[in-house]
Structures are given as C-alpha cells and as structure tokens.
Amino acid sequence: MSILNFKFLNGVKVLTEIKKMATRDAYGNALVELGKEHEDIVVLDADLSKSTKTNTFAKEFPERFFDMGIAEQNMMGVAAGLAAAGKVPFASSFAIFATGRAYEQIRNSICYSKLNVKVAATHAGLTVGEDGATHQALEDIALMRAIPNMTVLVPADGVEALQAVKAAYELNGPVYIRLGRPKVDAVFTEDYEFKIGKAAYLRKGKDVTLIGTGFMTSEALKAADILAAEGIDAEVINISTIKPLDEETIIESATKTRCMVTAEEHNIIGGLGSAVAETLVSHCPVPMERVGVNDTFGESGKPADLMQKYGLTAKDIADAAKKVLARK
C-alpha cells in the first residue's frame, strides 16, 4: 500500500504528492494483512461491513467473518465469548453504535475480565457528514477511556491507522480504535513507527504546543504554518494513544513552551483535551485551550462545512494558540 510518493532532489528524498486515505480504508487493509498471518483473528460486524471496510476481510476469509446483523449489544458479547475461547475478535460498527448502544457490554462483558477484544469503530465525529447528529459520535473517546483495562487509539492518517490496527492485535487486552469516514491528509511517511502509548513530535517549536489527535493533527500542522507566518514558533505533537497517555512527552513539551492547545473531533468534555488537562494539572500546570466540539450535537452537512461551523479548522487552532499565548 503506497500513500506517499517521493522523488529525489539533489540526493534528498522529498515528498511530492500526498494521497489522501480514510483511516477506515487502512483498517480494512490491515485486517486482510493480519488475517493472512494469524489464524486466530476473527471479524464481526453489525450490517455495516461495506462502510466499516470489514468487507475486505469478509471477502478473503469468509469463514472467519461473522455478520451479527443490526444487533451491536449481542455482537460485543459474542466477541467476548470468542475471545474467551482463544480468538482475537475485531468487532466493528459506527462509533456511535459500538460505544453508545453497546457501552455496557463493552464494560461488563469485555473490559471487566480484560478480554482480548478489539472494538474498531468507524464514522467517528462530525465528518460522518450528511447523516447528521444521530450518527456523529462525539463522546466515544470519553466513554471508552473511562473504562478500566481499555486502551484507546485514534490514528491520525492511513499510515498510522494501518500500524495501530496491527499493534492492537499484538496487545493482549481490549482496545478501542477510533476511525473516520472521510479521506484525510497523510501526516506520516511510511518509515514512521507507531507504538502504543507513544506520542510523536511532528514539528519542534518553542512558543506554544499544539496537540492533535485523529485527523485534527493535520489541522494542527496547518495551524503551525499559519502561526509561523505571524512569527509564532509552534510545536506540534500527535497523540494517537489517548490511553495510556504519553504523559512524559506532554510534560516535556509543556515545560518548554509553557502553554498548550489540544485539537480533536470530539466533545471538549472527556476527550483528548480533558486527558491532557488532567496530566497538566497534576504535573505541569500551564495555560491551555481546547479545540473541539463545544458540548453540542452536530448536524447534517458536508464535512468541510461542519468543521468550519463547529470550529475545528486550522484557523480555529491558530486562534486558540494566540489566545493561550496571551494567557502565558
């Protein structure tokens, strides 16, 4: 799978083209690769396999794919039973149904006994778009990270999603993987090495730290460009493991820049911003601003229009950075 193309200019490898990719597509590809290597992986879906991309696995390994119908609660319980019998199930649906409808099954049937189930949910956040608020999960990170034993991954792009899914397979225990519907900009080159629990510096700076998760990381990078044009030197960090959180990197950067902005396609309550704030308040209290959906439901619309209306663009991050700089 090639996402990035390179050419050599004066012997230096440079990026020439960014191919956009949806993290859900990377998930589908990762499942097929995992399926070839590991007999114990099984995949479940709740009648959304074309959208979640588990259909790629279903095509290759029909005997290890189980459509559970429109019944997410049962799907999570069945996944728990498969895991208890030694399988490594990936259970998929849209984020709203996986974490909302089946929340208590994930808590009691899966996480309580630390069963080896991967909940891989797509169509998270506002970028579901036209389907509107009922289908736009903006609370899923909060719900999942509040459950003991759960690991929470939010990959930024296709490269990271592919690796995150494989890393989730290798980890023995429950993992929530948050994936998106739209094609998103690549943030990482193929030589990137994802590690659960490890944040990645994407740009070093000294004035302000911008932390992104999911595709908001690419918005944070664009925000850093906007800020640079105004003489502000921003540091950009990608946090794709919301839990366990890489506190060391957060504290290291906060100690240097003394102010911070988080950016996520999620309610500002309970997600990345909350997790980072919890760390800062205990270890390195600095002024902080949270960019996210401001405790409201979404609505129908084109993803780009929604991002603009709900304040999730590079410009919103840059504005938040200027605001937090003034509080320094």
Binding site: M75, A80, G81, L82, A85, S109
Partner: peptide, 10 residues
C-alpha cells in the same frame, strides 16, 4: 447468553 454464543461459535 451472548458470550455463550461467542464460545459456541469458536
């Protein structure tokens, strides 16, 4: 019962 279904499926 769902967990039992999963075990039987395995």
């Amino acid at each position: 019962i769902s967990t039992a279904v999963g075990m039987a499926l395995a």
